[in-house]
């Protein structure tokens, strides 16, 4: 039912409002005395080299792609989880087949060296 989601809406509004309110309040009451050192990128006591906007390693992209596929898989776990109790062993075997086919994809990525970081 839609009304069940009223609680979700309340939490969302309160959560977002809490963050926004505190940012606004902090902006209003804090003293502002910026110096070049204060404005520089924080790098653990070191003076920073270059901009914080760096190009990240392209290898991260492969991991993101694999993540997206398994994220889609998780969507199908939800309806399965709801009915699992009433369907029992059959549902379990079926989901294991479903997962096994996808695990093969992970195995492929692993075997072909897509997961290696060198």
């Amino acid at each position: 039912m839609v009304s069940d989601f009223a609680a979700v809406a309340v939490f969302l509004v309160l959560g977002a409002g809490f963050v926004l309110f505190n940012f606004l309040l902090a902006k209003l009451i804090r003293p502002s005395a910026p110096t070049p050192i204060k404005l520089s990128t924080y790098e653990c006591g070191e003076s920073p080299v270059g901009s914080a906007w760096i190009q990240f390693n392209v290898r991260f992209y492969l991991f993101a792609l694999i993540f997206v596929i398994f994220d889609v898989e998780v969507v199908f776990l939800f309806p399965w989880a709801i009915v699992y109790r009433s369907l029992g062993l059959f549902a379990l075997v079926e989901m294991l087949i479903f997962l096994a086919i996808l695990i093969f994809g992970l195995f492929y990525a692993w075997r072909k060296g897509f997961l290696r970081w060198y």
Binding site: L62, L65, I66, I69, V72, E73, F76, F78, P79, W80, A81, I82, V83, Y84, S86, L87, F90, A91, E94, I97, F98, L99, I101, L102, F104, G105, L106, Y108, A109, K112, F114
Partner: peptide, 27 residues
């Protein structure tokens, strides 16, 4: 969930094959 696991078992498993194809193809 009930339909996936009873009437539409085969399409459900084929989703997995489709995702596998997508994964390998993307890589």
């Amino acid at each position: 969930g009930e339909l996936f696991l009873t009437q539409y078992v085969l399409p459900f498993e084929i989703i997995s094959v489709l995702l596998l194809t997508a994964l390998i193809g993307a890589l």
